[in-house]
């Protein structure tokens, strides 16, 4: 327990404190959707053509791992958020599946924006 108590203090460290807003998790997930979509487009539309047309292998060697890491972070956040809020399996599958398709991340971000708006409206009621 000493090691646990040595961790940095947080505003929600005790169970009697208000929990963090579920909207924060959705906002983080939306950012990861956009980042994933941008890195996928940079990989497919910039790095791959540079490799084949100009022989610039470095572009793929740079963007491949960058997109890989971004995709992993997105997938991890998607599973975490879906699991915390107990989403339907189809919603989670769509969030992960669309991330594999160019521009799919932007569709995911738009869907999440609608979900955020709905939750905000519900909280305001």
């Amino acid at each position: 327990m000493d090691v646990i108590n040595a961790l940095p203090p947080t505003s929600d460290r005790e169970t009697d404190m208000p929990p963090p807003s579920p909207l924060d998790a959705l906002r983080r997930l939306r950012i990861s959707c956009i980042a994933e979509a941008i890195t996928l487009l940079l990989l497919l539309c910039v790095a791959v053509p540079l490799k084949h047309l100009a022989g610039a292998n470095w572009a793929v060697h740079l963007m491949g791992p960058v997109h890989g890491l971004t995709f992993l972070v997105h997938g991890w956040l998607a599973l975490r958020t879906a699991s915390e809020a107990n989403w339907r399996g189809t919603d989670t599958a769509a969030l992960l599946g669309l991330a594999l398709v160019p521009f799919g991340g932007f569709v995911n971000a738009a869907r999440l924006s609608r979900r955020i708006d709905a939750q905000r409206a519900e909280a305001a009621r």
Binding site: T15, P19, L72, G75, W76, L77, A78, L79, R80, T81, A82, S83, E84, A85, N86
Partner: peptide, 22 residues
């Protein structure tokens, strides 16, 4: 490693839900 990380993501969400009283 991706499967293990995914498992961790699901567990992390469940721990958070459990902490919130679910």
């Amino acid at each position: 490693v991706v499967l293990l990380s995914g498992l961790h993501g699901v567990q992390s969400g469940r721990l958070s839900a459990l902490r919130r009283g679910a």
